[in-house]
Structures are given as structure tokens and as C-alpha cells.
Amino acid sequence: MRIRHLIPLAAVAFLLLQSAPAQASQALPPGQKHDRYVRWFYPSQTAYGPFEDGAGNTSSKPASGAFLTLPFMGPHIVTSLFDHCFPDYGTNGRVCRYDGVEATSQVGGPDPSFSEGYAQTPGGHDYLYYDGHDGYDYGLTYEPVAAAAPGTVMYANWLDPNCHECLSGMTIEINHGNGLLTFYGHLSRIDVAKGQYVRRGQVIGISGMTGTATGPHLHFGVYYVHRSQTPVDPYGWSGSSPDPWPWDLGDLWLTGSPRYADVALPAVTVTATQDASDPNSIDVSWSSPGGGTHFQVDVVMQDGRMKPWLGGVGAGSAVFKGRADESYWFWASVTTDLGWTDAGGSTSVQTPRLNHGQAV
């Protein structure tokens, strides 16, 4: 069994009450029902705060082989980090962050409700999570997961097809042709297949809480292809002392700090106006940024019913033939060639009342 598949705890370190110290929840045994992931306070797992928002600064230069961008879009909490001492899912009472900061069970003490997370300062709530973790957990709640670099899908399935509440659940691995793979665990949906080539920033699935997880999140990891039990920290090592983990390759983020993929995300705009030549007709247009966009345009009737109007079309415009004394508005949804989606609606348009004796 590969070490990286052993219980990547997701939702560690959450505060049950705003006035109480940060709490963590242990993973439930397989087969038990999970509670929804809720936290009020997040101890910082990186040197620059609790969020990974595409603007954090690691103060490191990228390694010569740097190739990664963040596996999601938009700000997200980092709930667990890579333990350089050591990422083998064992417990030795130490958690070592990429910048050399260390938390121990002896000095800072364990989180009272999660014994594998330790405070950096005695009596503090500045917990680092968690002992033996071999990747990063990001607080994605049923959201799109993106390929962190181009490559070929080498695995896309339940990690254990016979147990959907075991290990990392629905999992994707991508081989990037440089001796490394990226790993995406606990998904609720998989959108790619083994052998498929994927582009940077392409949606490969939806995050979730399959496998052993305390709540919805993404477990993201980097591993050697031919040493499948050997993880690599994409943040590298910038501590003043030698890296306790000998297999790291330096900072693998393209710019040295985690950034979003440079892809255009969709943002649908829909307009609807009364046609100048025919008061019962409505001129409708729709558009969105993003490459290879495919739209579905629906019309919403006065009684609230939504009916398909146009499907599989690109950005454009068309004339809708309505009826007198009716109101209409239009809803357009789009999917880009990288799998990102968005939707939006127009304002309502009222056609004029038919006067007595007036031809329709």
C-alpha cells in the first residue's frame, strides 16, 4: 500500500466556538457517518497566513524544474501542510514546515482534540497540522479541482474500489513527464480518464470528502513516479538548517510562490431588449471570456417555467419570438474548453398588451 494514500486528514484544526481555542477533528473510522466540515478559526499553516489566495509570498526562488500552479481558483484555507519530519504518516512528536518552523508535542503541546497537531508556542493556539502528513489539504467544498500542470492522467478511480470510505476515496494522479506526478484525493467527481492528456488549469474533477475524511477538502500532493511512496514538498525547503526530508527538489511553484493558472475564467453576460421592428420579439445576446465556450440559452416564461431555447452555441445573439402581454427573461450557462463553468441571466422584458381589434 502506498504511504501517500493513508488517511490524508482534511479538516484538521477547526474552532468549535469563537471564544475557544482552535480545535481539530480526527478522521472517523471507515464506515462511520461524517459531519459537515465547519470551522470558525484557522491557524495559519503557511508562513504568510491561513489562506492560499494566489498572492502569498514564500520568499523563495523557483527551482530549475519548477512547474506547478495551484490546483484550484480563488482563495482557500490551507488546513494541513507537508511535514518534513517526516511525511510517512507516522507520529514522532514533531511537525516541520517548509520554512524551518517547528511545532512539537513536548514544547508547544498537542491540540487537545487532535493529538497529531502541535502548537508552535507553549500554551498557544498556533497549531501546525499534522504529524506525518505528506501533502497539503485545501478547504475546497465541492468545488472544481484543476490540473496543477500539463500531463497525462495515470490514475482516475476510487483508490479502493471496494471501500468508498477508505484512504483518499476518488483519486486522480497525473504524470507530468518530469519524473513527478501530482495527486488529487477525496474527490466527489472525476472528469478525466486514464491516459487522457490534460492542460494546466483544466478542471479534472470536483472536490469532496470520499475516503477517510472529516469534511470536504482537496488533498494535493507531489510524488516521484518511480518511487511511489516518496512525496515531495512543492514549497521546497527554506529553513536555515538542512532539510530533514532528503527527497525534496526545491520550490516547485512556477514563480517561486503559489499562483493560479493563467487561464481565462468564464463570466457570463446576457442582455435582452425589445426588438425595434417587432414589439413581440426580443433581441438576446450572450458572451463570456474563456476559450472554446459552449453555451446553453434558456428562456424563462412569465409563469416561471424555464424552457431550452438554444444549445451548443458559441457567444452570439438571436431573436426570440414572443407573445403579446408576456414577460420573458433569459438564462445562459457556459462551459469552456478547460471545463470551467458559469451562468447568468438577463433582465426581464415585457411585451406590449394587445389592443382590442389589433392583429397579433
Results as ranks from 00 to 15, higher is better:
residue 58 T to W: 06
residue 92 N to L: 06
residue 78 V to F: 04
residue 119 A to Y: 03
residue 75 P to F: 08
residue 64 S to F: 07
residue 96 C to L: 04
residue 95 V to S: 02
residue 67 F to K: 05
residue 100 G to F: 07
residue 43 P to H: 02
residue 51 F to P: 03
residue 68 L to M: 14
residue 69 T to K: 10
residue 113 S to K: 02
residue 70 L to P: 03
residue 62 P to N: 04
residue 122 P to A: 10
residue 124 G to Q: 07
residue 102 E to K: 11
residue 103 A to I: 03
residue 64 S to D: 12
residue 91 T to K: 06
residue 58 T to A: 10
residue 37 Y to A: 13
residue 70 L to T: 07
residue 109 G to C: 10
residue 86 F to L: 09
residue 67 F to W: 08
residue 57 N to F: 08
residue 43 P to D: 08
residue 30 P to Y: 05
residue 60 S to F: 02
residue 91 T to E: 08
residue 111 D to M: 11
residue 55 A to N: 15
residue 112 P to Q: 12
residue 83 D to M: 02
residue 40 W to A: 10
residue 99 D to C: 08
residue 93 G to R: 07
residue 48 Y to N: 14
residue 119 A to M: 06
residue 40 W to K: 11
residue 104 T to N: 00
residue 102 E to S: 03
residue 118 Y to S: 05
residue 56 G to A: 12
residue 105 S to H: 01
residue 57 N to R: 11
residue 92 N to Y: 00
residue 121 T to K: 01
residue 79 T to M: 05
residue 109 G to N: 04
residue 112 P to W: 09
residue 74 G to D: 09
residue 72 F to S: 12
residue 39 R to L: 11
residue 126 D to H: 14
residue 90 G to L: 08
residue 94 R to K: 11
residue 26 Q to Y: 14
residue 64 S to T: 09
residue 65 G to L: 10
residue 114 F to A: 03
residue 78 V to H: 04
residue 111 D to G: 01
residue 117 G to K: 06
residue 82 F to C: 02
residue 26 Q to T: 15
residue 61 K to P: 10
residue 61 K to Q: 10
residue 25 S to W: 01
residue 26 Q to R: 13
residue 50 P to F: 11
residue 39 R to N: 15
residue 28 L to R: 07
residue 50 P to Q: 13
residue 60 S to D: 13
residue 76 H to W: 03
residue 25 S to T: 15
residue 115 S to N: 12
residue 65 G to K: 09
residue 120 Q to R: 11
residue 52 E to G: 00
residue 49 G to H: 04
residue 96 C to N: 03
residue 126 D to G: 13
residue 61 K to Y: 08
residue 40 W to L: 13
residue 97 R to L: 11
residue 88 D to N: 01
residue 83 D to Y: 01
residue 71 P to S: 13
residue 68 L to Q: 12
residue 34 H to L: 12
residue 69 T to W: 12
residue 110 P to G: 03
residue 126 D to E: 13
residue 57 N to P: 04
residue 99 D to M: 11
residue 49 G to I: 07
residue 90 G to K: 03
residue 66 A to V: 03
residue 46 T to M: 00
residue 48 Y to F: 15
residue 70 L to R: 00
residue 28 L to S: 15
residue 53 D to P: 10
residue 123 G to S: 06
residue 75 P to S: 15
residue 112 P to M: 11
residue 106 Q to H: 10
residue 42 Y to C: 10
residue 32 Q to W: 06
residue 79 T to N: 06
residue 60 S to I: 04
residue 37 Y to E: 12
residue 25 S to L: 04
residue 100 G to Y: 11
residue 46 T to E: 09
residue 89 Y to L: 00
residue 76 H to K: 15
residue 70 L to G: 03
residue 117 G to Q: 03
residue 99 D to K: 05
residue 28 L to P: 08
residue 60 S to K: 01
residue 84 H to Q: 02
residue 49 G to L: 07
residue 109 G to V: 04
residue 38 V to S: 11
residue 63 A to D: 11
residue 114 F to H: 00
residue 26 Q to I: 13
residue 34 H to T: 07
residue 103 A to S: 09
residue 79 T to I: 12
residue 117 G to D: 02
residue 104 T to S: 02
residue 101 V to Q: 11
residue 94 R to G: 01
residue 72 F to A: 00
residue 126 D to T: 07
residue 122 P to F: 00
residue 39 R to Q: 08
residue 30 P to M: 04
residue 80 S to R: 01
residue 81 L to Q: 12
residue 118 Y to A: 05
residue 33 K to A: 14
residue 95 V to M: 04
residue 84 H to M: 04
residue 120 Q to D: 06
residue 110 P to E: 02
